[in-house]
Every structure is written in C-alpha cells, then in structure tokens.
Design a protein around this nucleic acid. Structure first.
Length: 595
RNA sequence: GGGGGCGUAGCUCAAUGGUUAGAGUGCCAGCCUGUCACGCUGGAUGUUGCGGGUUCGAGUCCCGUCGCUCCCGCCA
C-alpha cells in the first residue's frame, strides 16, 4: 500500500465499498459526538468523511483534534445508510472507517477559518497566503487560471504559433513605465532592467524569421496598484505575427477570446468578429477608450442647441470653444431628488463644475436648468436624446476633453446606480485608429502610444499630414469595460521610424542609441509584422467574476508592492551591497527610523 | 505625491459622550454513537491601531501619526 494514499479525497464511490484504502489530507471539519468522531478530510480533489471510534488505539496519538492538521487514515470503505448519505459531497455515499491514523503535519490554531468564505483583512490573508489558498474560492481561481493558460497554449499552437522564451534580465527601456532595476556586479554603476514586456525581443524574433511567436510572458512595471493592476509583475499572452495585417491579428484573437470565454464561463459571449470602434468615436460616445458595452447609455453632443440659449453658463462654455455633452436616460425621471443631488455631487467629485438635467414629466420639462430654455430648444433636446415622458437628460458643459472624461464617468455611474448593465454577458470590442501623436502637457507633439506603431498611410502620411491627424495601426481589445490588451501593426522600416521620431522631436541618433537592436535589425531585412498582448490575469479575473486581480494571483503583493508572506522587499547584507558597488542614500525620515 | 473609506476579542462585527466594552464564530474544559456549518453546558479572551488634546467623563468629538483598501496622478 502506498505510504500516503491509495485514493484522493474526491475519489471514493459506492463501487469502492469493501476496499481497504488509505487517504491523506487536511482536517476540514470535526464533529465529535463522544462515542463517534466524524472528520471531513479535504485535499485538492475533494472531501471524504472519516469515521473514528474513540476506542481505537490511535485516538490518543493526537492531543488536539484541530482543523487544518494533515492526517493519514487507513481503513475500510463503508456504504452509508440511506438516511446518512450526504448529497452535498461527491463522496457522500460512502465513508472511511479509520483503523489506523498517522499525523503527517499538525496545525496550530489558525488565524482565520479555511472551511468558510468569511471575509477577513487582506493583509492577514496575504501573510498567511498558504491558508488562504486552501480556501475554496481562491483555490478554484488558481485552478481556473492554470486551465485557462493551458488552453491558451493549445489554441495558440493550433493556430501555428510557437512559444519562445525571452530574457528576464535586459536593458532599461526609455519609454513607458518605471523599470525594476538590477545592479550589475561585474559592471560597476550599470544596471539590468526587468522587461516591462518582451516588446523588442518579440519583434527581433520576427526579424529572425520565426513567423508566429507567443509566450505567457512575465512583465515587470514599477507602477502603483489598482484593483485590476497588481504591482510588480503580471502576465501577458504576448504574441507577434510576421507578414500580418491588423485583420490577421484580430482574427487570431477573436478565435482565442471567444473560445476561452465560452469554455470557461457560462456567460453569453459576443459573436465574432467583435465590433470595431474608432478611438475618436469611443471618446465621443462613451467618454472612454475602454467602454463597457453592457451599459446602454451613450453620450451625445448638444453644443449647437446650447450655443445661443438663455442658460448663460452653458452658452458661455460653448462660446469659449467648449462643448455640452448629454446623456439621455429612459425612465429616470421618477428617481427621488436625492438621486439627482447625488449625481451632481458625483460629477463634481470627478471634476465637473456642475451637472445639469432635465426630466420630462406629464409633457413638461422639469429640473434646475429647464426654465432657462425656450420651447424650441427643449423640443430640439428632446428629439436629440429621443426622450419622452418619464425620461431624463443629463448635461455636462466643459472643454471637449473635460466633458468627455466627466461624461464617461457619469455614464458609468448612472449605469451602476440604475442597474442598467446587461447581465451575464461578456461584451467585447476593438478600439481602433488611435492617434499616432498627441500634444503633451507642454503643447509639444509626442507619441500618444507606442512609438513602434505603423502610422496609417506610412511614410507618405508622415510627410504630408498634420501630425495630429495621423492615425496609427494601434488597437485595444476591451471586454466589459476592462482593457484586456493593446497591440499594433509595427513600423518595420528604419526610414519611417526615424521620420516618426523626428516628428516627436527626436533625432536619428536617439533612435540609434535608445533602440539599437531594433534599428540595426530593421536595416537587414525586416518582415512586416504585427502583434498584441492580452493580459492573462485580467482575462482570468473576468472569467472568475472577481472584482480584484489579486484574487486570481497565487502570491500577489499588496498595494505598496510588498510581499507580506516572503517579506519582500527586504534589506540585504552590507557585503552584497559592496559587491554591487552600491551605497545607500536613504530619505532622512527612514535614516531616523533605522537609528 | 494627493483624495475618500476603514481600523473594537484570533476572525467578522455591535456599542446616543455616561455602569464592569458586547454578539456570532474560533479557542479551552465537560457531556453526547450518525453528524455533515452536529448539538448542549460552562470558561478565558481586549493597550478599542498608536500618540496627543477637549471634557467631570472618550471606543465615540478634535489634531497628529501608522496600517489596510478604493480612487486620482502614474501605467510606451
């Protein structure tokens, strides 16, 4: 007989009755009836009830019968009486009558309960992550993640992709997020950087002739956390295709996303191809480049109606080049006054000076700004928003950028508060035609996204068009308001690359010095190529229906990028620092603390 | 770096500025042969995050600070 087990705790059935078996696992629950002791023994696979008679010799081998102690039982499988069958357990038709027991790993009293999903502070959960990971929901999430990744590899391979590894210790990249740096022992004063993404390597693989690349790639960015952004590291399904157009990338990813989301969820999934929304349209209609299409509300432009109206606050904004955006909401007029006050307060909290609204009740326009508008203006608004009795239109007057961002936030908030979001569905869309350049804070032309993207129209567009009018073959895939991925058709021509950088204010020497590998490679025969990199953690988060990305990561860091289980980041020996030629120059406050 | 929320027993939470800070759960002891979140009886929990202040009196009000979290900035 195997030293630890002949079966798992999720395996035994009626057919096994009469067999002598051995099970090992954690004590999930204990029910002590004096004359008989029931233990639910749990492992990765399930739960099996163990029946223990106190007159057995092993009964005294353990001082405390505690949950989460690891035990090994040997005994006979017995059928339960019909009245004692537990339909909640897959093994509920049988039980194991223990003859012998071995204690494999005793547990102290645990800081929070494993066998129930009671909430507890995340700091405690992270410190005892190994206990948290035993709990069903988190355990299931990690299993789901494994299965999703496995299926992704299969689907990618089926579509002709090969998986390649790229370096973890590489050079710092000049664009993008802050890098994690690793000091070099051999080269005093020099540093490696952990890759923010294998971007340049995957492009180099295309230049190397590998045609279709993918990798479940760790990415490291030293940026602050969000609910959907784990600090430190995260995983991308990184992919790149040679001799491919934007449509080729879309086809691969639509197949992938629809398959994965259908297979690992019971929710409805959009059919392919997914709808495509130009960036400018997304900003106009949804006020966001990652719109949640489950939300039926859209923004419209009412600037022309307010331009000459009697409501000076709005007319003034339009006069100065601003806009008035409106969101029409069906059946909202019946909401109590507090609802509207709360919405105004919300709009102000996201930077609005105010939030106007008009409700139509019994054919009459009501609300704080209605009295400033003529019958004709009201009629035009009503027709614009398709509003009728019982409906409300909200108005935001601001600069174009301001109105879009505030309107986007108001749209989302209205959707949530009024429970307007379509249920049990994954709504996908592509956001396409991102601008190649935009004005930065100082009013200078800068790359708006990836400097390696191919401008639509190529060199010709760079030479002849206003930079701010040039679009890029740059795209995002968005699901339920979550940005899953960003990608682009790459600029693989050294001349076009130099021209693009020139427009952004960088000379040829910048391209040569900052991106030496790509620049050199592109001079020796580069294939046109395109790619994308969906976030694996976010995909699993959506599939697991979790609001927080840490619920799908086995060992996440907290918001301050600390690993409370391992104690990272931590101090190191002075000797290590000396070897790395590093002298600490700590902030004053910390020096005091150290003394 | 900034803003919001939270911080009371191991855990989840309660407690008009007013008696000895409670409940559930967990823990400890006892009882119980069919439970499956077993049940019953009893018991121990505490620097109310920390430091000041106001007050006759502070878990409660004020100031500061620390911790966690959500958001803004940031995330090619």
């Amino acid at each position: 007989m195997h030293k630890f087990r002949t079966h798992t705790c999720g395996e035994l059935r009626k057919e096994n009755v009469g067999q002598t078996v051995r099970l090992s696992g954690w004590v999930n629950t204990i029910r002590d009836h004096g004359g008989v002791l029931f233990i639910d023994l749990r492992d990765h696979y399930g739960i099996t009830q163990i029946v223990i008679s106190p007159d057995k010799a092993f009964y005294k081998n353990i001082e405390h019968w505690r949950v989460e102690t690891v035990l090994c039982f040997t005994g006979d499988v017995v059928a339960r009486d019909a009245s004692a069958v537990n339909p909640k357990l897959i093994t509920g038709g049988i039980e194991l009558v223990a003859e012998t027991m071995e204690v494999l790993g005793e547990s102290e009293v645990i800081p929070f309960q494993v066998n129930k999903e009671e909430e507890c502070s995340e700091a405690l959960r992270l410190k005892y992550r190994f206990l948290d990971l035993r709990r069903k929901s988190l355990h299931d999430n990690i299993v789901l993640r494994s299965k999703v990744i496995s299926r992704i590899r299969q689907l990618m391979t089926e579509q002709g992709f090969l998986e390649y590894q790229t370096p973890i210790l590489t050079s710092s990249s000049p664009e993008g997020a802050r890098d994690y740096l690793v000091p070099s022992r051999i080269h005093p004063g020099k540093f490696y950087a952990l890759p923010q993404a294998p971007q340049q390597f995957k492009q180099l693989l295309m230049v190397s002739g590998f045609d279709r690349y993918f990798q479940i790639a760790p990415c490291f960015r030293d940026e602050d956390a969000r609910a959907d952004r784990s600090p430190g590291e995260f995983y991308q399904l990184d992919m790149e295709l040679s001799f491919a157009t934007q449509d080729d990338v879309f086809a691969v990813n639509e197949k992938l996303m629809s398959t994965i989301f259908k297979e690992f969820s019971t929710k409805k999934v959009d059919g392919t191809p997914f709808i495509r929304i130009p960036y400018r349209e997304a900003m106009e209609k949804y006020g966001s480049d990652k719109p949640d299409l489950r939300n039926p509300l859209i923004m419209q432009d009412a600037s022309d109606i307010f331009r000459t109206c009697g409501f000076k606050a709005f007319a003034g904004v339009v006069e100065k080049g601003g806009v008035v955006k409106t969101i029409a909401v069906k059946g909202c007029a019946g909401q109590p006054r507090k609802f509207f006050d709360d919405m105004v307060a919300f709009a102000q909290s996201v930077g609005a000076k105010g939030l106007g609204y008009i409700s139509w009740v019994d054919g009459e326009a009501k609300g704080p700004i209605a009295k400033f508008l003529s019958a004709d203006e009201l009629m035009k608004l009503k027709s614009l928003g398709g509003a009728g009795d019982g409906d409300t239109m909200f108005f935001i007057a601001d600069t174009l950028k301001g109105a879009q961002s505030i309107g986007g936030a108001v749209r989302t908030e209205l959707g949530l508060r009024l429970d307007l979001l379509e249920k049990d569905v994954f709504r996908f869309c592509w956001i396409v035609d991102f601008p190649m350049f935009e004005l930065d804070d100082e009013g200078k032309v800068a790359f708006s996204h990836n400097p390696f993207s191919m401008p639509q129209g190529g060199m010709d567009a760079l030479l002849t068009k206003d930079p701010l009018d040039i679009l890029a073959y740059q795209y995002d895939i968005v699901c339920n308001g979550t940005e899953l991925s960003s990608g682009a058709v790459r600029n693989h021509s050294p001349e076009t690359m130099i021209k693009a950088f020139e427009i952004a204010g960088y000379g040829k020497e910048v391209v040569e010095s900052k991106f030496p590998a790509l620049y050199r490679a592109f001079k020796y025969g580069a294939p046109p190529h395109a790619g994308i990199a969906p976030g694996v953690d976010r995909m699993v988060m959506l599939l697991a229906d979790e609001p927080n990305i840490r619920e799908v990561i086995a060992f996440p860091m907290n918001q301050k990028a600390e690993d409370l289980l391992m104690g990272a980041p931590g101090e190191v020996e002075l000797k290590q620092l000396r070897e790395l030629h590093i002298k600490l120059n700590l902030p004053k406050k910390q020096e005091k603390d150290a003394e």
